[in-house]
């Protein structure tokens, strides 16, 4: 069963027709291969057309596709087979299931991979708190980063969250402080830090593991200060302007790159990362290998200074 997004209606119809043709072939015994080929060709063309002209809002929908690969799928697909050891807990309160991390290797070289984790089905979505970490998630991430620094292991962060969890206990335990601390500490980690927005990059909850030497976005990911729905509610006082908000916020990878707020874009397969996860994961892996090679050549002090300079340059002001 394929999950179709609202803009994929033409695709859904074609698939339905294809299925019907296949059924008729079985019942009637008449060879329908040419018709089936025709439909398959049409499906490919339609998919290509739809995905090469996605509106910002459609990209938001793609980024939230229930079959889109999440952090653990990336770890499984891009790290050396069986190399991943998940490390749990912030050593203080508990283990946050919405933010995972651990040691692994890529091409035989150790890496610390940290990322938001959404659930893959209804039950797991709840278990993972929909990918919304509590403060202990950010503190676990920081513990792992500091450990990576100690052993001179690069840090890779995979970002995919609708936001940091706005709950009562999250406030009690200092959600704001936890995120702030990570921004401060990530700035001065003396190992390479690579960040990838693989799905949703919502606000401080995303940035909390998003300060890196390189920050890349997947082609259909989004990254901004708030979700388009909430932006619509606040600025237009209604949920109905989410499409307009998505457009105005310039939250796509293309716009973020144009505005120099990210360092690069990673191609997704036609049909999105959920359509061919292995291809999307492969592309991220390639970017990691390529960036690491370059970043490792730079002295830590210089890397840190460049990191600070990059983020310090962000912003547009007018001075008379």
């Amino acid at each position: 069963m394929i999950t179709f997004l609202e803009f994929e209606k033409p695709l859904a119809e074609l698939y339905e027709q294809l299925e019907k043709t296949k059924e008729i072939e079985v019942i009637s015994g008449i060879d329908a291969t040419p018709t089936i080929r025709e439909f398959e060709k049409k499906i490919e063309e339609t998919r290509k057309e739809l995905y090469s002209n996605l509106t910002p809002w459609q990209k938001v929908l793609v980024s939230r596709h229930p079959e889109r690969p999440y952090t653990l799928a990336y770890i499984d697909g891009m790290c050396d087979k069986g190399s991943f050891i998940e490390l749990h807990g912030d050593r203080n309160v508990k283990d946050d299931k919405a933010l995972v991390g651990g040691l692994a290797s890529i091409d035989g070289e150790s890496v610390m991979v940290i990322g938001h984790q959404k659930g893959i089905n209804t039950k797991m979505r709840q278990y993972r708190n929909f990918g919304m970490p509590n403060p202990e998630g950010y503190r676990k991430a920081l513990r792992l980063m500091k450990m990576a620094e100690k052993f001179d292991i690069p840090v890779i962060c995979l970002i995919d969250t609708p936001g940091a969890y706005p709950g009562l206990e999250a406030e009690e335990r200092g959600q704001g402080e936890a995120i702030a601390r990570n921004l401060f500490e990530m700035t001065q980690l003396n190992v390479p830090v690579l960040c990838f927005i693989i799905g949703e990059g919502a606000s401080g909850g995303a940035l909390g593991i998003g300060v890196g030497d390189v920050v890349y976005m997947l082609e259909h990911a989004w990254y901004s200060v708030i979700s388009p729905e909430n932006c619509s509610t606040i600025l237009w006082r209604s949920w109905d302007f989410k499409e307009k908000a998505a457009e105005s916020m310039k939250l796509t990878a293309d716009d973020m790159f144009k505005n120099k707020l990210i360092d690069g874009i990673i191609k997704e397969p036609i049909g999105g990362a959920h359509f061919k996860p292995e291809e999307a994961i492969h592309n991220v892996r390639e970017a990691i290998v390529g960036s690491l090679k370059k970043l490792k050549k730079i002295k830590p002090e210089k890397r840190i200074l460049q990191r600070i300079e990059k983020f310090s340059a962000m912003g547009v002001v007018v001075e008379k």
Binding site: I179, A180, L183, F184, T187, Q188, S203, G204, L207, G210, V211, Y223, S224, V225, I226, C231, I234, L235, S248, M249, K250, L251, M256, N259, L261, R307, I308, F311, S312, M314, G315, V316
Partner: peptide, 26 residues
């Protein structure tokens, strides 16, 4: 909090200010 009309530019001010504070600390 954030100035929504500057969207991601606003978000990055969090990283910017925190990054600059590391220099002060140093």
């Amino acid at each position: 909090g954030a100035r929504m009309m500057e969207a991601a530019f606003s978000l990055m001010q969090m990283a910017k200010t925190s990054a600059k504070l590391t220099l002060l600390a140093k």
